[in-house]
């Protein structure tokens, strides 16, 4: 089982890496964003789908990963100075820093999550998202609204003939996303996944079978935070900056929407959801631009940023109304034949 999952993950990663060679810089930048969102949505979908803990604050965990990256990468790159290896040591240190920061925050939240049910956990995590901008101002060193810069990671000399910067960043992002998501898939398929499902199904029954629900929930939250943190770190690597505005409420909600549309608990669904989060604003703008001079400028301006949000809402409603299991359910023909039985498997 384990070997098969790892092999599959490796295969998908290779295909994704090959695909980056077909893309231009802008689209490779979008691939990096997609990979980061994929890691976060996958973490979220496992958390919500398997343990039923609803987190509305995954963007904050991404932000924690991002700030962790900026600090660690900044100090290591700075310390190594002009050494040609400095940016890459910084990159590794940054990823580690992101993991530590997001893991620490996730473990803290997980401890709370073990005691909180449904709406209370959602409320707690929502409060975190809303508090993020003020926290960035109040905590010295986070740089307020303007945020922090992160060191630039250039293309290594050995690869310089093959790729440009965005391409290299996309490659790094895909590898990191694979490293973030594969453990989640293993977790989901293994014993821990079984325990999570047991806790979700009936907490008392799980307890009677010797499963400690508190530990399982806290563990799931932490694992999910680590994936989100890596996602945040990757975005910061690609954009060379971290600021609270990049991880705001709308983005956090979009992550949840991505998980729901994809199908809770489904990693493949998370990929679809993440693609939607990244592509929808672009798609809407492209369609609006193509309209033959139809819209008056004032209306076009109003629609510009807002239409994507409205459309996302419409898509969620449509998908949930038609297929409660999300896109994942659409893509599995056999599932549709036996909706009730499959529903449990999907979760």
């Amino acid at each position: 089982m384990t070997r098969r999952i790892v092999l599959r993950a490796a295969l998908v990663t290779l295909v994704a890496l090959a695909a980056t060679f077909l893309l231009d810089p802008y689209w490779n930048f979008q691939v990096a964003r997609f990979a980061a969102c994929f890691a976060a949505v996958a973490g979220l979908t496992v958390l919500v789908g398997l343990t039923g803990q609803l987190s509305l604050g995954h963007s904050v965990l991404m932000a924690a990963g991002g700030y962790g990256y900026a600090f660690a990468a900044g100090s290591v790159t700075g310390a190594l100075g002009d050494s040609p290896a400095a940016p890459y040591a910084g990159l590794l240190a940054g990823l580690l820093g992101g993991l530590v920061a997001a893991g620490a925050l996730g473990a803290l939240l997980g401890a709370a999550a073990a005691r909180l049910h449904g709406p209370y956990l959602a409320g707690l995590t929502l409060a975190l998202v809303i508090a993020l901008p003020s926290a960035a101002v109040a905590v010295p060193g986070l740089g307020g609204d303007q945020g922090l810069g992160a060191p630039f990671v250039p293309v290594p000399d050995a690869l310089a003939a093959l790729m440009y910067v965005e391409h290299f960043h996309a490659v790094v992002a895909i590898v990191v996303a694979a490293a973030a998501v594969t453990p989640l898939m293993l977790l989901r398929a293994g014993r821990q996944g079984l325990r999570m499902r047991a806790v979700l199904g009936h907490e008392t029954a799980a307890r009677l079978s010797g499963v400690n629900p508190g530990l399982v929930k806290a563990g799931a939250f932490t694992a999910s935070s680590l994936a989100a943190g890596l996602g945040g770190a990757v975005i910061v690597m690609a954009t060379q900056s971290v600021s609270p505005g990049a991880f705001g409420l709308t983005f956090s909600m979009l992550l949840v929407v991505g998980a729901v549309i994809g199908g809770l608990g489904s990693i493949g669904g998370a990929a679809v959801g993440a693609a939607l989060v990244v592509l929808l604003p672009w798609a809407v703008e492209t369609v609006l631009d193509q309209l033959p001079a139809g819209l008056p400028p004032v209306l076009a301006q109003r629609l510009d940023g807002n239409l994507a949000v409205i459309l996302t809402g419409a898509i969620v409603i449509t998908v949930i109304a038609a297929r409660p299991g999300g896109v994942a359910q659409l893509l599995t023909p056999r599932t549709t034949a036996r909706p009730t039985a499959s529903h449990d498997t999907e979760r």
Partner: peptide, 20 residues
């Protein structure tokens, strides 16, 4: 168990292809 993983691979591939 096999089903979701197959699904995972297919969807991810589809997503990548779409992006490409």
């Amino acid at each position: 168990m096999t089903r979701p993983t197959t699904l995972t691979a297919t969807t991810a591939l589809a997503a990548v292809a779409a992006l490409a």
